[in-house]
Design a protein around this nucleic acid. Structure first.
Lengths: 143, 143
DNA sequence: TTATATAGTTTACATCCGTAAACGTCAAAA
DNA sequence: TTTTGACGTTTACGGATGTAAACTATATAA
């Protein structure tokens, strides 16, 4: 079976996906209305993005009378996880801890989110190394 | 005073910045050597990226005999924080908690990193809301 | 039936990005 | 002094992106 090639969803396309994920399905007119309000985009812009997402295989269109209804073909959480992991993979590994701390300090998290994070951290602490090396320059382990 | 316009550092440029941040300063030949090994880039490619980063104001070049030595003009940690915050700002706020948990599960963190995160989380727990709304579609608070 | 609105498709277009080659200069080697 | 490199600058070039107008087909209102 063909392995799902990493689909590259651009920033603008991401906004369209968010709406689709949240609503489950949308018509282009609905999407146009939402994006006009949320992003200030013209209908034509939304059409282009929907088309590109179809071509990339992130959305699926199902004919519904005169128009199409669009559905996501990839799941939201895995897509988010992948985007985040890709970014963190490009950062100095020695600094991801500090970066995460800074981030958590600014995000709004629910009680449940915090509890879940605490659980994962407690588990990780059992086997965590004393320090993490910098991996920015081959052969250099200190920033 | 001119406000520092958000500098957009691309993926390839980011790799150059990482090396510069770690070494503090580099000559183009050093950088070319490092990037040849690390990324498989030709010297010409490295020159282009150094030039673009100079133009963007992320690097500064100081004449040193025949050649230049390059220095970063932006700090690493703030740049990392900004990149991460920008990404998280594009994600469904209702799901950032889960995304963070998934991420932390995969990252390698030091004992100190974990301790610091635990401290920040404990503090946040004091005022955290019961839940966080979805913000993907205006007027809709549930995914 | 004919005009109109609407949905999708095609074309546009400047800019950014990844990836370099080509070119011009100046210093060091021969 | 002439040749050869090393270094920076200019040019290249296809593809992605943001942003949208133009065009086409069709369903619906008149």
């Amino acid at each position: 079976m063909e392995a799902q090639t990493q689909l590259e969803i651009s920033d603008a396309e991401w906004e369209v996906m968010r709406v689709t994920w949240t609503l489950g399905s949308v018509t282009s007119s609905q999407m146009a209305e939402i994006m006009a309000e949320k992003m200030g985009w013209k209908t034509a812009t939304v059409k282009t993005l929907l088309g590109r997402l179809i071509k990339k295989g992130a959305l699926r269109a199902e004919k519904n009378g005169r128009a199409f209804t669009y559905y996501p073909t990839v799941d939201e959480q895995p897509s988010m996880d992948e985007a985040v992991e890709t970014l963190f993979g490009h950062l100095c590994q020695m600094r991801v801890g500090q970066t995460l701390t800074d981030l958590v300090g600014k995000l709004t998290l629910s009680q449940a989110d915090i509890g879940q994070l605490q659980t994962v951290l407690a588990e990780k602490a059992k086997t965590a190394p004393a320090e993490v090396d910098c991996d920015c320059v081959p052969g250099v382990t200190k920033c």
